[in-house]
């Protein structure tokens, strides 16, 4: 993979484009256009689609995945990938639910859940950064392992959480469900970190050319490890939020969520080989994905068509992003 990284050449000599033009051919613009098309497409497909409260409610169903996708975006920009967070969500939620069901007080059970998420992130970091194994295959392995351990722990049954703990998605702040608020706040926070701090700039440097970054004194191992830890931690937060939304936990929650998360990052214009991408893009893409999915579900479109559209979107998004990046510089 490292060899293809040089494809969009850093040609400093090319003429400077007018500002409006660079804005227009950013991948986020494409995502935004698709979002507008999606909203209108959805309203044509079904008269029941365009209802802000319905769209917000539907977003809460995807909000846990979307929150993790924000952090995943930073991992991909740093030139790595993590396919395991959806399985991490399931395992940390199962550990949390299992702990509270066996008598541990809820706050402590939450801490245990978060720590286990962190530990899963640490395992990925150890294998990828410590042992220098490729993240793509490592996280396919940990994805299988985490999901499998959740199945060992919870079996095929669901573990209930107490009545008062249920309903994080029913808490409204200014008419917006709490998970959506969290998503927006985290997007703003991570957007500032990635776009406005040295830490963020270092992430781009590592993703663009890790060797050069290391020569420039950037501690790439430390930064990448912290990103894997952050994904692990945020995934466990998302897992516990899912437990609160559902009222019960099973090993198969967020099954297939890795596809959705990668899709959000890719649709938002994150460059799969690293070095490029924004939180804004993933933010918009999460909305796009929810709009497209719920638009099709409320119109009773066959799930098969939904699979085709989602798979097709991923490929179209990455083709478009590649084209855009090969014609422009950041």
């Amino acid at each position: 993979m490292s060899t293809t990284k040089t494809a969009p050449a850093q040609a400093d000599s090319s003429p400077v484009r007018p500002r409006w033009q660079t804005l227009l051919i950013r991948p986020e613009t494409m995502t935004f256009m698709l979002l507008v098309v999606g909203v209108f497409g959805g309203s044509v497909l079904s008269p029941f689609f365009l209802d802000l409260s319905y769209i917000l409610r539907s977003f809460t169903l995807y909000s846990e995945l979307a929150i993790v996708a924000l952090v995943l975006t930073m991992v991909i920009i740093a030139g790595e990938i993590d396919l395991s967070p959806a399985a991490n969500m399931a395992l940390s939620a199962c550990i949390f639910a299992w702990a509270q069901a066996s008598g541990v007080p809820i706050p402590l059970a939450i801490v245990i859940g978060l720590l286990s998420g962190l530990a899963m992130g640490a395992l990925n970091a150890f294998l990828v950064i410590g042992l220098q194994l490729p993240s793509i295959i490592v996280t396919i392995g940990t994805l299988t392992l985490f999901r499998g351990l959740a199945q060992v722990l919870a079996g095929d049954k669901s573990i209930r959480v107490p009545e008062w703990f249920i309903g994080v998605d029913k808490i409204m702040l200014a008419g917006i469900p709490l998970p959506v608020v969290l998503f927006i706040v985290l997007a703003i926070g991570l957007g500032i970190v990635l776009g406005g701090t040295i830490f963020g700039r270092n992430i781009y440097q590592i993703g663009t050319n890790e060797v050069a970054a290391r020569h420039a004194g950037i501690r790439s191992a430390r930064i990448k490890s912290s990103l894997f830890l952050l994904v692990g931690l945020v995934a466990s937060v998302a897992g516990i939020m899912t437990a609160s939304r559902l009222g019960s936990v099973r090993y198969d929650i967020a099954a297939g969520g890795e596809l959705q998360m990668v899709l959000m990052a890719m649709l938002g214009g994150t460059y799969i080989f690293g070095g490029r991408g924004t939180i804004l893009g993933t933010f918009l893409a999460a909305w796009l994905l929810v709009i497209v999915s719920t638009g099709m579900i409320v119109a009773n479109v066959l799930p098969a068509v939904q699979l085709v559209v989602l798979g097709g979107l991923l490929i179209v998004a990455i083709i478009a992003t590649n084209l855009i990046y090969s014609r422009t510089q950041r």
Binding site: Y54, R160, L246, T294, I297
Partner: peptide, 29 residues
Amino acid sequence: EATSQIPFIEAQIQRGVNVIGIAPNSPDA
């Protein structure tokens, strides 16, 4: 999966159906 029916129920509520029949994938989710 246990949760895969949830968006479908949400959508049917939104469509304003009168009756939802369901073969539940989970006893409590």
